[in-house]
């Protein structure tokens, strides 16, 4: 059987209309993951062993159980044991489930990002009698954020793709829509290739956004300086040059 190009192209508009719901889930789950991830990363840095262990167990559990199993436990399992969870919308379950799962990954990323900030800067701050929390906010965090961006974007990319698991909870998002289209037309290959391409497109756009963010945040760390009175010229390693002038 030949590839049905006309069906293939017609599938896209029908899939595009579900991009917002996929992005909605992905962004909300990511926001939750970032908040939880920061909290867990800070707990991991706690001086209290008990607190550190709680954080470690959290990371271990949510990294260790497959996402789909986690979602099923929460959506189908929890309400049986705790009736309070009955009637919790599937969408909320999916967002929370995905968010919590990714927070375990982010916690590790954030921890490493904080640790990679040169400790000498903290000492310099302490020697000037600046309190540690203030150093954390004004010196360590801004640098840690930059260190964390590439790995965090990776996590977001995984998360975006994992929203396709939400169809198992009965949520109609991009993949669910594809499944329905394919089921109706029997053109599985065309439909799923189109679905795959739409995800890919989203991720290309996100990656491009990541590069823009990185580029702008990295400005202070590049060894270039803007030469006044010239909008286009940049000189490399200006330190040495400027130094010669001041001698």
């Amino acid at each position: 059987m030949a590839f049905d190009w006309s069906y293939f192209f017609k599938a896209f508009p029908q899939l595009f209309s579900y991009i917002p719901s996929t992005l909605f889930m992905a962004f909300l789950a990511m926001a939750l993951a970032v908040i939880l991830g920061i909290i867990v990363a800070l707990l991991q840095a706690s001086s209290i062993t008990f607190v550190r262990n709680i954080a470690k167990i959290y990371v271990s559990i949510f990294r260790g159980i497959p996402t789909l199993v986690q979602l099923f436990i929460v959506y189908y399992g929890l309400p049986q044991i705790f009736p309070v969870f009955k009637g919790v919308p599937a969408l909320m379950t999916a967002i929370c489930g995905l968010g919590i799962k990714q927070s375990a990954y982010l916690a590790e990323i954030f921890r490493a990002a904080i640790n990679s900030v040169d400790q000498g800067q903290i000492e310099a701050g302490l020697a000037l009698n600046i309190k540690y929390p203030k150093l954390l906010i004004h010196v360590v965090m801004p640098q840690a954020v930059i260190n964390a961006i590439p790995a965090t974007s990776n996590t977001f990319i995984s998360l975006l793709k994992e929203t396709s698991l939400a169809f198992t909870l009965g949520i109609t998002e991009l993949f669910a829509q594809g499944k329905m289209l394919a089921g109706a037309s029997f053109k599985y290959f065309e439909t799923y290739v189109a679905v795959g391409l739409v995800y890919w497109l989203l991720i290309v756009v996100i990656t491009w956004g990541q590069h823009l963010i990185e580029k702008s945040l990295n400005k202070p760390y590049r060894r270039f300086v803007h030469v006044p009175n010239s909008s286009t010229r940049f000189i490399r390693n200006p330190g040495k040059q400027a130094n010669l002038e001041t001698h």
Partner: peptide, 24 residues
């Protein structure tokens, strides 16, 4: 204190490095 490895705050401009302690 002045350190061997300078330990300037890398995310702050020279001016902000100098004002950091005074302001914070």
């Amino acid at each position: 204190m002045v350190f061997q490895q300078f330990n300037l705050f890398k995310n702050l401009t020279v001016l902000k490095n100098v004002t950091a302690a005074l302001v914070l």
